[in-house]
Design a protein around this nucleic acid. Sequence first.
DNA 1: GTTGCCATACCGACCGTTTAGTATCGAGTG
DNA 2: CACTCGATACTAAACGGTCGGTATGGCAAC
Lengths: 213, 213
Amino acid sequence: MATDGRTRRNGAGRRDLTEIAINCFARHGYQGTSIDRIAREAGVTKGAIYHHFRSKEDLLAAAVRDRIGEFETRVQNACRDAAPDESLRRIAEVCAEHARSEDRPRFAIKLMVESIETNAPVLEEMRGMMRRFRAFLRNIVRAGQDSGLLRSDADADAVAAAYTSAVIGAETQFYLDPKRFSLEHTLETFVSQMLDNLRPAGAAQTLQGRSDP
Amino acid sequence: MATDGRTRRNGAGRRDLTEIAINCFARHGYQGTSIDRIAREAGVTKGAIYHHFRSKEDLLAAAVRDRIGEFETRVQNACRDAAPDESLRRIAEVCAEHARSEDRPRFAIKLMVESIETNAPVLEEMRGMMRRFRAFLRNIVRAGQDSGLLRSDADADAVAAAYTSAVIGAETQFYLDPKRFSLEHTLETFVSQMLDNLRPAGAAQTLQGRSDP
DNA sequence: GTTGCCATACCGACCGTTTAGTATCGAGTG
DNA sequence: CACTCGATACTAAACGGTCGGTATGGCAAC
């Protein structure tokens, strides 16, 4: 708790504040999180936050931007040097890990849903993130089609949209009912189903999932 | 706006209040909706609301229960006298209609997500709804398996979970980006993909979706 | 008159934001 | 080296407003 080499004072820096803020926002939502709560968890007073950020919305926007960039980097790194079908499997794994992580989870789902009809700037940020995610998936599918690995008559946009739906819906159900909803198994089932369906006609057909008798 | 034959006064009855309340909650969230706002939209004052409901949470719980029951009835009716595969198509259609309706939409997604870590009673209600929804789907899949219509070696629970994921995720993306996200097409793509995958080995294989060249 | 339904007025708590003031540092100056 | 100056990083306190909730009273119907 002493010096961390980054700040002159004992308090939290601007970067630390966005970390703590997004954590609070992800747990209690934007409207359910008071500036005082963030300040308390950061070990500073309310004034310190208003020294770094113009408003509560400004703090939220900064925190969201940080997290979105982090998530996208993570997804991209998981796909490095991987074939299209392997990439599609890995992305689901990264999303599941993200949902199970200690600090990061829920922020996307919670703030995305809350911002609908209540916070236009954040909504726009989230909309951009989802569009980029779908485009990223679509390009992977297209690459698979171009290389003959995946069926070329499939609608890559629709496949990407369905994939994104499965991820968001599975995360939501997992947050709602973590003890009864098996996140990884659901995503694996979906991805296997999708890859089976995308296999070019004539290729060998595998049963659902791996061979785990 | 005069007498509607139900109430002695010009105000709204208990049932009308839950309708208006769920509408507000669905748009602005629970924490983003004040009692005064609901009262204003209902054409009454706060006192009227506290005459019918003990607290804001009580009002929310009553409104949520009403809506959940309504939705479940709608889904069940859509499946009357339908074969399993047809039921699975119809449920997706009902969910898409629900998402596009004028008054009802968003309440499930919004309140479900918001209640995570903030409102245990509502969370429990939502959890029950999702469990029943998945169980309903699973039973349809099992019925299809028993009748030989669907592959018997598929994991019915996992299929139901993936289906539910797709519905929730597609609705969420649609609310987030209604102009760019095509809800119906995404759900149709998913359901076709799933049914293709569930077709028993040896059965005729159709291409994705209908023939819309 | 009693009862059900609702309006009015109000309370205490809390929220986002502002302001005034303070402590701590680095750079510049002699 | 000491010393000033000006940022920077905060604290403490308060303000105006809104919120959920309550107490009270009145009007209409039976």
